[in-house]
Design a protein around this nucleic acid. Structure first.
Lengths: 364, 364
DNA sequence: CTGAAAGCGCTTACAG
DNA sequence: CTGAAAGCGCTTACAG
């Protein structure tokens, strides 16, 4: 069967469709409060009162103002009112994330957005891509835009450059990773104990050769998870085999290649602990490529979409990302409201979700 | 084996850790250009020149200014300079998405961010959750913040409320879905032909009872994809069975429940066309729950992470999301740069990725 | 090359 | 209850 159905033919990319003869042409400039005042025959200040909903305005005047507002299509300029107002609040907060297109980052974004929206606060966000220079650039640009607070998943190993801004009164809350060389609130997952639970789970299923697949060693959470892995091996009296420790696997592709090499080696591990969601994805691909998915156990840190539908389903230690983002936002707003209590490091618990891959037993 | 390894004990949630005695206390107010000028013993205007990198400043004076800037920890206030500058540019654009935590939306965000970053432009973004009221609220708040342009994946069926803003000179570009009742540039996927390709693929594998699993009928892309489904059935001379057409499946959960009911019915379809990524996820779950994943064919619109690792791997018609976002951003900046050519509807092609689920043949 | 004056769009602080 | 004046932090347009 081979045919072309009715309906519009597929169009070439970028082809114009329905060209509109009249493009949007800028008309006259924007109306200001002055213009509204002139049209309504009142003072500028009266317009200001009406626009800001002050109760003490004569009903007649208010009506005239509203008519002028509608007629001129007047839109208040928040930017100008912020400048003059005493508190200088911009009603924007900055959000610095690893990569907005990563599910972890975007879940944080959404959680923060939901809290900010209740207060009429906008989000100005950007991705850092693990680049400390980008971190500093983005921070500077957010400060220049006078955000009222900053939520940061830091890329670099030193946030002391923010000290001055902090002393100027901009609250700072760190998510996912704590601040380095700067006292500031933070909300992070229970990384080290979470890794302990993951590795212990594998040991409990009889494994003694357990590989660690870690993210960039520059990342605090990667360090913590590795520490949990080592702690657990040591406590169980198992040797740490350096050939089973793979660091700096930042992408799914890097993890996939590294795990294929590992499994093709002379003494492959019987179990894998993956330190992060993209690494877990690459590891799943590698196991499949080697046909080892049913004999090599796997526990991943961070949940992965559709992990429960894979064969075998993937056991993970899951973070409560929404809780982390929501908590960070609440703390930030509390600080913006004047809370000056001691800085706190909040730790959000993780949970082991056994699904199958982590319960594969060690060969006798 | 059951033990507790060394290392820090798991902490209770929200427990304070490393309490810092000295909380961040706001110090003196922010330094202004006036303060810098006074300290450096020059005029305000000279400070302005130095800060903005004007070449025509005496080296000695410039050095004094720079020293004062460092000493006072002066940070330029972009918000104030924007107000005075002739062009009134805020160097921010607004981005209105369905849901930032959805992979489709966050991929658009990242693509737009990458283009905006090259120009030093920040992103002010928000989620609409298919709510037309939220769309209007967010648009109003972005306009009040004087964004230089707007990229919109609209939720409602009427964007004419933006006409005035458009005439005021704010460029508007629509992504994923075209603008309704407003002439504006748009960048959308090749929805209807993409659906044709998907359904034809199933027919080519012998299927005659093909179900349509669609998103909210209020969504333009859902309408287009449904139209493509109908076109293809009609052209193939197949009857459209209303019991096989399921609309308004907006979440994975809704899709899962509906597909389970469908498959448990008297005359289940032999193939499924899923109209969107979350629906595909729910459908995969439903097929698995019914044990039907190897006998019921499935083609999904939009790619799904790990779709290639499922059993069977899921055949999809994939959009080039990065291209859509990048193109929308480029068009917006071109408009901001003064391009006043005709409004265009850009269509980005989709591609069929056969992986297994779509190639399951019809029973005899 | 440098600076005093005026003003961006609005709100504050004060008189009437 | 209403409005004329001053000023938020900065840049423009103009003299020197």
């Amino acid at each position: 069967m081979n045919f072309d159905p009715a309906g519009p033919a597929p169009m070439s990319p970028l082809a114009p469709r329905d060209p509109v003869p009249a493009p949007p042409v800028p008309g006259p400039g924007r109306a200001t409060m002055r213009d509204v005042a002139a049209l309504a025959g009142v003072s500028l200040k009266t317009v200001s009162r009406v626009v800001n909903g002050a109760a003490t305005v004569d009903a007649d005047m208010a009506a005239r103002v509203r008519r002028a507002v509608a007629q001129l299509n007047y839109r208040p300029d928040m930017t100008a009112s912020n400048l003059r107002r005493g508190d200088r609040r911009s009603f924007m907060i900055g959000l610095m994330l690893e990569d907005v297109s990563n599910p972890y980052s975007s879940a944080i974004y959404r959680a923060v957005e939901d809290v900010a929206r209740e207060r009429g606060v906008g989000l100005l966000a950007g991705s850092l891509d693990e680049d400390p220079d980008r971190e500093r650039d983005l921070a500077a640009s957010l400060v220049a835009r006078r955000v009222d607070g900053l939520i940061i998943a830091p890329a670099g190993r030193d946030q002391s450059y923010l000290r001055d801004e902090q002393h100027m009164g901009t609250p700072l809350v760190f998510v996912d990773r704590p601040a380095a060389l700067l006292p500031a609130d933070s909300v992070v997952a229970d990384n080290r104990p979470g890794a302990v639970v993951a590795v212990r789970h594998l040991i409990d299923h009889g494994h003694r050769r357990i590989a660690f697949l870690g993210d960039l060693t520059s990342i605090a959470t990667a360090q913590e998870r590795y520490a949990g892995y080592r702690d657990t091996l040591r406590f169980a009296g198992l040797p740490e085999d350096p050939s089973l420790v793979l660091h700096d696997l930042h992408t799914a592709e890097a993890a996939e290649a590294a795990v294929i090499r590992l499994l093709s080696g002379p003494e492959p591990p019987s179990a894998l602990f993956s330190g992060q969601n993209l690494i877990t994805v690459g590891t799943v691909r590698a196991l499949r490529a080697c046909g080892a998915q049913h004999r090599t156990a796997l526990v991943g840190f961070d949940d992965v979409p559709l992990a429960d539908m894979l064969d075998p389903p993937v056991t993970v230690v899951a973070q409560d990302v929404v809780k982390i983002g929501t908590l960070a936002a609440r703390i930030l707003f509390r600080r913006m409201d004047g809370d000056s209590s001691d800085v706190q490091a909040h730790v959000v618990p993780v949970s082991l979700i056994p699904r199958g891959s982590g319960e594969i037993p060690a060969p006798e």
